[in-house]
């Protein structure tokens, strides 16, 4: 079982409380419990912890930027602590948003340049360090 907290840790629960939630899910034959707060989303998922990366679902109709390859999702260069981009930032087409690391290879994740409009990065959907696959939504954006 995993408990996913959003990047601002808006939801704080003790491990006992998480375990209780998991017990409730199991009893009701459910797999996932998820709820939204002002600051983000909280999800408890039963079963194979790593079977599929637990991603924060993008808002309905929102545009997303997805991973193009398999690897570890990074929001900053490993040698620098500074994130490449933060939620709320304005980003230009072609801008580097994140990286997907596989071994020694760092594949860039960029804002598609086929749409010339800049955008605001509204949310990062996956915690840095998560194993992501082809097509995993990583960023939620809002075009201007």
């Amino acid at each position: 079982m995993t408990a996913e907290l959003d990047n601002d840790y808006a939801v704080r629960l003790s491990t006992e409380q998480v375990a209780q939630l998991a017990e409730l899910l199991r009893g009701d034959g459910l797999r996932t419990l998820q709820f939204d707060t002002v600051k983000g989303r909280f999800a408890v998922t039963l079963g194979d912890a790593s079977a599929t990366p637990v991603t924060d679902a993008p808002a309905i109709g929102a545009e997303t930027v997805c991973a193009g390859s398999v690897g570890e999702f990074l929001t900053s260069y490993p040698s620098r602590g500074e994130p490449l981009v933060r939620p709320g930032a304005e980003v230009a087409p072609g801008a580097l948003l994140g990286l997907v690391r596989t071994g020694l290879v760092f594949a860039p994740v960029t804002l598609a340049a086929d749409d010339p409009r800049p955008a605001t990065l509204t949310r990062i959907l996956v915690p840095a360090g998560t194993l992501v696959g082809y097509g995993t939504p990583l960023f939620e954006i809002q075009r201007h």
């Binding site: 194979d48 790593s50 079977a51 599929t52 390859s69 398999v70 690897g71 596989t102 071994g103 290879v105 194993l131 992501v132 696959g133 082809y134 097509g135 995993t136």
Partner: peptide, 25 residues
Amino acid sequence: ADRAVCIGPAPTQRSYGDPAVILLA
């Protein structure tokens, strides 16, 4: 599986039949 990861779009040559993406995974 203990872990499952998406490696590409539906066409075989870009997923199950692509040595590069399998090695990356």
